[in-house]
Amino acid sequence: MNWTAIYSIFSFEMARFFRTIAQSILSPVLSTSLYFVVFGAAIGSRIQEVEGVSYGAFIVPGLIMLSVITQSISNASFGIYFPKFIGTIFELLSAPISFIEIVIGYVGAAALKALFIGVIILITAFFFVDISIAHPFAMVAFLVLTCISFALMGFIIGIWAGNFEQLQLVPLLIVTPLVFLGGSFYSISMLPPVWQTISHFNPVVYLISGFRWAFFGTADVPILTSLMAIGLFTSTCLAVIWWIFRTGWRIRQ
């Protein structure tokens, strides 16, 4: 392992993040505050408790997941797409590093940035609602795993994308709907039976449910199922990355 190279990629990517640190913090704080004003104060006051938790607190895990998932994907996809776009990828390809090291550098930085934003949202949430975290270790584990797995997915999108439109396409058309319909703002049990069944095909449901369990001890699906779902998703992403590595798909002719 060329750790110096991994660290170089990682710190180069993190530097980009810290150059715009004000924006990086301000934007999630602002959007989270807006969600709390709209859903927590305005609408939430008319909604009964969900599964014994006030609605304002109930949406916290979903809100964090929503941001963490979109951030992980966009950080990682942009991170690897940008060198392709401006041509600096030649340097990665001619360096004495393996594809796996490139992945660790980019995905690691993207995941850490997303984690950072997730933590900021959580801190912001404390100012608006009373929340206690039932299983703090599980909460951290879920958060970290989600950051990594979606950063892996973002990396794949970045390798695949041939232009900026394609870079936005998957997050916009697939990920955002899955996250919104994955129970970010409601419990799956609130849905009619048909939609409950359909929801079980949405992988994000398992993530949000598991994450919510870590906060409140209640979940839509059993916690083990959630863990298996995120494990399966991560493995799938790793398998695709491995295939890209073997074939040099869209990187090395």
């Binding site: 170089s8 710190s11 340097e91 360096a95």
Partner: peptide, 14 residues
């Protein structure tokens, strides 16, 4: 300086 530093690190040099 940052881009040159990056290149050096990428090639595994301290």
């Amino acid at each position: 300086i940052n881009t040159v530093r990056f290149s050096r690190g990428l090639f595994g040099r301290k």
